[in-house]
Simulated scan of single mutants.
Amino acid sequence: MTLNILFAAKAERWTGYEQPLTDALTKALAGRNFKLATKFAPEEVDYIVYAPNSDLQDFTPYTRAKAVLNLWAGVENITGNETLKIPLTRMVDFGLTHGMVEWVTGHVLRYHLGLDIDITRQDAKWEPRSQPLARDRSVAILGLGALGQAVAEALVGLGFNVSGWSRSEKAVDGVRCLHGDAGLTEALKSAQIAVLLMPDTPATQNVINAETLAQMPKGAFIINPGRGPLINDDALLAALDSGQIAHATLDVFRVEPLPEDHPYWAHPNVTVTPHIAAATRNDTASEVIAENIRRSEAGEPLLHLVDRDRGY
């Protein structure tokens, strides 16, 4: 039987990037009889390869479909879709995970080594300084899902003093793992650098606010490659203006692209990056999609199945 796989995402992922999705999925699904296209009669579709910014928002006509296979790690824009009655998976793959690890590690090291001081110096003054070793730098990872754990393990490998916080109890080798409201306070009070890697759920929105920012050491740093709504923007700007937070590197925002008149663009202590920390790479993402199709056809559990109640 031929499997009809509907591609429901923006056109550039279909034809562009380093390797078009058509080529990557064809390679990953080698040996399986399938048809991959951007249009089918809805009742003939078996699987939907999906991005939440797709024009497809009503899943009701897709009566034969067995699963929606999301191309993004984030699923907050689809979990509440009441027309979606079939299993939904989110993207967790080698390329996305390691892209995030490399991006976060680079910015943690940038702050740890004080590289901005050297890059922006214009006064021609020779001022040697002694940097602390990684073991003397406290980093808190807020969110210990697949990405958070991978980042925490990488920073532990570099010798950093790493704490991790999650809403439920977790265990990661070499990481001081905390959970619950008391655990969040404990993680933040020693966090010289805080990395936000939580999903966007009602329970995590505005977790970085005036109260939690005040719990951090004065002059701490914020790195957010997770989700824009994790931060109360007004509170962060106030903390930056007061010096409570020395600098913030932000990759995600409540509105994207970030509006040209947003205060983050002009703030001297904010670095804006255009949602690039963990891009989906077609070659590695296709391997995960192909494996989930194989599992579904074999009656095996899907990988990275979304819990609609938890929102991820």
Results as ranks from 00 to 15, higher is better:
N33E: 15
Q131K: 14
H112N: 04
T79M: 11
N81H: 01
V108I: 08
A51G: 15
R90W: 01
Y62V: 11
N81A: 07
Q122M: 10
S130L: 15
F59H: 13
L113A: 13
F34S: 00
L109I: 14
H107V: 14
F34M: 11
D46Y: 00
D58T: 09
I48F: 07
Y47I: 05
G80R: 05
V108P: 05
D118I: 05
V49H: 12
V75R: 07
K66C: 03
T120D: 08
H107N: 12
Q122G: 09
L96V: 02
N33C: 09
P87I: 05
N70V: 00
D118P: 00
K66I: 11
N53C: 03
P52T: 05
I48Y: 07
T89W: 11
P132I: 02
F34T: 01
I78G: 06
L88S: 05
F59K: 06
L115C: 03
P61A: 03
G99S: 13
G95F: 11
W72P: 10
F34D: 03
V49Q: 12
H98T: 08
M91Q: 15
V68R: 02
A134F: 14
H112M: 03
F34V: 08
T60D: 04
L69C: 04
G114C: 04
L69K: 08
L109R: 10
T120V: 08
S130W: 15
R110P: 00
R64H: 13
T105K: 03
I78A: 00
L56E: 12
R121D: 14
A41Y: 02
L69M: 06
V92A: 11
T83S: 14
A134G: 09
S130C: 14
V75D: 01
A65N: 01
I48K: 08
G106C: 14
A41H: 07
D55H: 04
V45L: 05
D58Y: 06
L115F: 15
T83W: 13
N70K: 04
K39H: 13
Y47P: 07
A134H: 12
P128W: 07
G99R: 10
I119P: 10
S130E: 15
D46R: 00
R110G: 04
R129A: 13
W72H: 07
A134P: 14
F40T: 03
N70T: 11
V49D: 09
Q122T: 14
A134K: 08
Y47V: 05
A67P: 12
G74S: 10
P87N: 01
P132K: 05
F40C: 09
Y50H: 04
R121Q: 14
F94D: 15
E82G: 13
F34Q: 02
V45C: 09
K39D: 14
N70I: 06
V101A: 10
G114R: 00
G74L: 02
R90M: 07
T63K: 12
P128E: 07
A134W: 10
A41M: 10
L56K: 02
H98C: 00
K39V: 11
R121F: 11
G80M: 07
L109E: 06
I86Q: 02
D93K: 08
Y111G: 02
K39A: 10
I48P: 03
W72L: 07
E76R: 00
M100H: 09
W103E: 05
W72E: 09
A67I: 14
A67S: 10
Y111S: 05
T97D: 02
A41D: 12
L113N: 15
N33Y: 14
A124C: 06
E44K: 14
M91I: 03
Y62I: 07
G114L: 06
A73Q: 11
N81M: 00
